Computed example of a mutant assay.
Amino acid sequence: MTEYRAVFDAVVRFANGGGMSADGFRLDLPSADLSEAEIGRLFVRHLGLALVGEVTLSGLTIVEEPHKGSRGVAPVVASAASPLVDLSHPIREGLVTYPGLPAPTVTPHLTREASRTVYAPGTEFRMDLITMIGNTGTYLDSPFHRYADGGDLASLSLDQLVGLSAEVFRLTDARDRGIPAEVIAERDVRGAAVLLHTGWDRHFGTEEYAVGAPFLTEEGAAYLVEQGAALVGIDSLNIDDTSAEAAGRRPAHSLLLAAGIPVVEHLTNLGQVPPSGATFTAVPPRVEGFGTFPVRAFAVLP
């Protein structure tokens, strides 16, 4: 379904004196046929302004663009046969998730042909072995991934992983790689799955995926801990900056996992999930003494 946003400059005068201005502001619209006055009221509602005496817009244009989650605009959800959106990359033999880590291999334990000698006539089965690092496909990091005394996969409760309120932050047109706290501060994220939609999943499985990937800044991670986020996910190479300039520091992992906040990396299809209103689930198997494992992550649309 097509979504629209307004682009404009604005001048606000307050009824009790003073004012403010905005240049090149972009605002979600529920439809493309709103009047200038209606867009002005949405602008005031989005910013949560009080005692506004007058709003003047100039240079107003309406463009087709995915919503970012402006307050006061209900999410637009396309009708679909299923309310479910799969947010996981499929795992296959030879898949390169993170450059430098081993790809999964699949070998037969019992072939269909061999099983015919075991079972009744007309009955056959196939059993395979898969060898893979936990960091394969779309996966979840538990605190044990970062800390020796942190909770492992088996310690995670379903309450931490299932049916979480999903807050999706649209960052596909961000100019900087680092995602700051200010981007997230516009919404209440307490108890929510904060999902960072960078669009970087378009490079998944290619060499470009490992170069210049978006990441969450240390300040952004600290803010999410302070605000009580339940889980943080990203559709990029890593929640942290992995470039040479980072010198091996992993502040986002360190802060989030120290606070018991699971991290899901290598998500996909976040563009199909509205900024607010959906729920998010990502459940790994209960493996003791293990820190990271693939998940079938998905969203349920409102």
Rank of each mutant, 00 (worst) to 15 (best):
S88V: 03
S79N: 09
S157R: 10
V300G: 05
I239V: 14
I239W: 11
I234S: 08
G24W: 07
E65I: 04
R177F: 02
E265K: 00
A166M: 10
V63R: 07
R190S: 15
V283C: 03
L95I: 14
R45G: 03
I261F: 01
F293C: 15
F204E: 12
L171P: 11
L129H: 13
A114N: 11
E265F: 00
E3N: 03
P262D: 01
P251W: 09
I130R: 10
V44E: 10
A22N: 13
P108Y: 02
T97I: 03
G72M: 02
S236W: 12
I184P: 02
R190D: 11
E186Q: 06
E3W: 03
P90I: 07
A259Q: 03
P143G: 15
F290T: 06
S165I: 10
P214E: 08
G59C: 05
H266I: 07
Y98T: 14
Q227M: 14
H203Y: 09
R177G: 04
I239E: 10
H266C: 11
L153T: 05
H253F: 15
E288R: 12
T56H: 02
F298C: 02
P251V: 09
F14S: 01
R45L: 10
S236P: 05
H266F: 05
A32S: 14
E182F: 01
L101S: 04
R187M: 08
G19F: 06
G191L: 10
A181R: 00
T206E: 13
Y209G: 11
M1S: 13
M132C: 04
T172H: 06
L257M: 10
D176K: 15
K68R: 11
V96M: 12
G277Q: 09
V211Q: 05
R286S: 06
S142I: 07
T279P: 01
V44S: 05
A282S: 05
V7R: 05
F298I: 00
S21D: 15
I179W: 06
F8Q: 06
D235T: 12
R170E: 15
D159L: 09
L87H: 01
P75D: 02
A247D: 14
L267G: 13
R175L: 15
P104C: 07
G277K: 03
Y209P: 10
Q160C: 11
H253C: 15
I184E: 05
A74E: 07
S35K: 11
A222I: 02
G100A: 08
V183W: 00
V183E: 01
R202P: 07
A103Q: 01
E265I: 00
E288F: 02
R5W: 03
S70L: 07
A213M: 13
M20V: 02
R146A: 14
A74Y: 00
T292D: 04
V118T: 11
L270C: 06
P104G: 06
